[in-house]
Deep mutational scan, measured.
Amino acid sequence: ENVVSAPMPGKVLRVLVRVGDRVRVGQGLLVLEAMKMENEIPSPRDGVVKRILVKEGEIDDTGQPLIELG
């Protein structure tokens, strides 16, 4: 899985990584606010952040691509 998608609709509060960062499975990639709760979205695998497809403050839909890993 190279693309991390939104598991729920919500607002992107914080992006915790930058392009080029090495990430490990379970590491937080970004924080979504949904139903007044903050949810940290973890990396599904080890890899390198290739692209960040959303910006802080954006509203996303379920299934929307958020981050691409390489």
Rank of each mutant, 00 (worst) to 15 (best):
V3S: 07
R14S: 04
A6Q: 04
I59R: 08
L32W: 11
I59V: 12
I67D: 01
N2M: 14
L53W: 13
G57E: 06
K11C: 08
I59H: 11
V48A: 03
E68W: 12
T62S: 11
R22I: 13
R14T: 05
L29M: 06
I52E: 01
G26C: 08
D60R: 15
Q64E: 09
L53S: 03
R45S: 10
R45L: 12
G63E: 06
V19T: 06
P7H: 08
K11R: 13
V15D: 00
D46C: 11
I67N: 01
Q64V: 12
D21R: 03
G47S: 04
K11D: 01
I41K: 01
G10S: 06
R24A: 10
D21I: 09
L16I: 05
K55W: 13
M35W: 12
L29S: 00
R22E: 10
P42A: 12
L16K: 04
V31I: 13
G47A: 10
L69Q: 02
G63A: 07
E68Y: 11
L66W: 06
N39V: 15
N2R: 09
K36R: 12
D60Y: 15
L16F: 05
L16T: 02
V48C: 12
V25T: 12
T62W: 11
M8T: 09
L53G: 01
G26L: 05
G63Y: 07
R24W: 11
G70T: 14
G10F: 10
S43D: 01
P42S: 11
R51E: 06
D46S: 10
V12I: 13
P44C: 06
E68Q: 08
I41V: 10
V15G: 00
S43P: 02
G57W: 06
E33K: 07
N39K: 13
E56L: 12
P7D: 06
L53P: 01
R14Y: 05
M37R: 12
V19N: 04
E1I: 14
L16Q: 01
L16W: 00
R18K: 13
S43M: 02
L53E: 02
D61V: 14
L29A: 01
V48M: 09
V17L: 02
P9N: 09
R14W: 04
R45I: 15
G20A: 04
L32P: 00
T62L: 13
V54D: 01
V3C: 13
P7A: 08
K36P: 04
L66C: 04
V25N: 07
I41D: 01
G57P: 04
L53V: 05
D46V: 06
D60V: 15
M8Y: 15
V12M: 04
L66D: 01
K50Q: 10
S5E: 08
G26I: 04
D21T: 07
R18Y: 06
R45W: 13
V23S: 02
R51S: 09
G26N: 06
D60N: 15
P42E: 08
L53F: 15
V3T: 11
T62E: 13
E68G: 03
L69E: 01
D61K: 14
M8N: 07
K50C: 14
L32H: 05
G47K: 01
L69C: 04
D46K: 07
K50V: 14
V48E: 06
E38S: 09
R14N: 03
V4R: 03
M8D: 00
N39F: 15
G57Y: 05
L30F: 08
D46N: 12
E56T: 10
T62C: 11
V31M: 05
R24G: 07
P9Q: 11
K11A: 04
E33I: 12
P65N: 06
R14D: 00
G63S: 08
V25Y: 12
K11L: 09
G28M: 11
P9K: 13
K36C: 15
I59C: 12
D46M: 07
K55T: 13
R14V: 06
A6Y: 07
V19K: 07
L53C: 10
V12K: 01
V31L: 07
V48I: 13
V3N: 06
L53A: 03
K11W: 07
E38V: 11
V49T: 02
N39D: 04
D61C: 13
G10K: 02
M37S: 10
A34P: 02
E33S: 09
E33W: 15
K50F: 11
G63M: 08
I41R: 01
N2H: 13
P9F: 09
P65K: 06
L29I: 07
D21F: 09
N39I: 15
V49A: 02
D60Q: 15
L16H: 03
I52V: 10
L69V: 08
K11Q: 06
E1Q: 13
P7W: 08
R14K: 11
K11T: 10
R24V: 13
R24Y: 13
Q27I: 05
L29W: 02
G20R: 05
G26Y: 08
E33L: 15
V3I: 14
G63D: 08
D61M: 13
Q64C: 11
N2T: 15
L53N: 04
P44R: 04
R18L: 08
V49D: 01
I52A: 01
D61N: 12
E40P: 07
L66K: 02
V31S: 02
V15R: 01
K55G: 09
D21W: 09
K55H: 12
Q64T: 14
Q64I: 10
V54C: 14
G57I: 05
D46R: 07
P9D: 06
G10T: 04
V19Q: 07
I67F: 07
P42C: 14
L30M: 09
L29T: 02
G10N: 03
G47V: 02
P42T: 14
M35C: 13
A6P: 03
V17Q: 01
N2V: 14
V48K: 05
G10P: 03
I52F: 03
L13D: 00
G70N: 11
Q27L: 05
L16R: 03
S5P: 08
P44T: 07
R14G: 02
P65S: 07
P42L: 14
L30T: 00
